[in-house]
């Protein structure tokens, strides 16, 4: 084995272990803060796997979108509502855990079966585009994937407008169901949700 192949193998092994252990940690850890930070680690390792596949643009986009935006916002939200709250213990926690574990294991076995039975067509190293991939992605986005691309942007716009409407109460000055004026105070102040039926 040449040095390059060995390095690649070591990187792949380390990244895979980090992804698996990190993902298990995200699900199994009690502390939500640790879960959120571990999620960032998992995203980073997935970006590393993309790099190993010569998809540097996708890797950078993964870091920018998932680590830099999604994960930061998750952690931000967790810290903004940093309430120490004792959750009520659930009665049948054991049976719930057994059910969810069995569902997850079934899904895992399904995925493994797909992985084993499907014949993966691997691109030969000569055909890999490497640094060209940025241009190729751009061409695809503006030709055959134009419609999904535009629909995704409309979806994001809708989500943004929805978030603004939810966050700014002065958009709706009256409660839709009851007709009472809406509390225009700070969002942190506890108040009736907009659409609940006040009797």
């Amino acid at each position: 084995m040449s040095i390059a192949v060995t390095t690649q193998f070591i990187c792949f092994t380390v990244l895979s272990i980090v992804v698996i252990i990190g993902a298990l940690g995200v699900v199994l850890l009690e502390s939500i803060v640790y879960s959120a930070f571990l999620l960032g680690g998992v995203f980073m390792s997935v970006a590393g796997l993309y790099l190993l596949l010569n998809a540097s643009f996708v890797a950078a986009a993964q870091v920018l979108v998932y680590v830099g935006a999604v994960n930061v916002l998750i952690i931000f939200a967790i810290m903004l509502v940093n309430k120490k709250e004792d959750l009520k213990p659930i009665n049948d926690i054991k049976s719930r855990r057994i059910i969810s574990t069995s569902i997850c294991l079934t899904l895992l076995s399904l995925l493994i079966r797909v992985d084993l039975t499907n014949v993966w067509s691997l691109a030969s190293p000569q055909n890999s585009i490497g640094e060209e991939s940025t241009i190729r992605i751009g061409e695809h986005l503006f030709s055959d994937y134009l419609l999904p691309f535009e629909v995704a942007s409309v979806l994001l716009l809708m989500a943004m407008i929805g978030a603004i409407v939810l966050a700014r109460r002065d958009v709706m000055s009256k409660d839709i169901s009851t007709g009472l004026p809406v509390d225009q105070e700070l969002i942190e102040k506890s108040s009736e949700p907009l659409l609940t039926n006040k009797n």
């Binding site: 930070f37 920018l64 680590v67």
Partner: peptide, 21 residues
Amino acid sequence: VGIGIFLWIALSSIQPIGLLM
């Protein structure tokens, strides 16, 4: 690297995680 300046933008977005941490 082909992604050049994009790499810097992506990497600088990791920093706030460290600050929050």
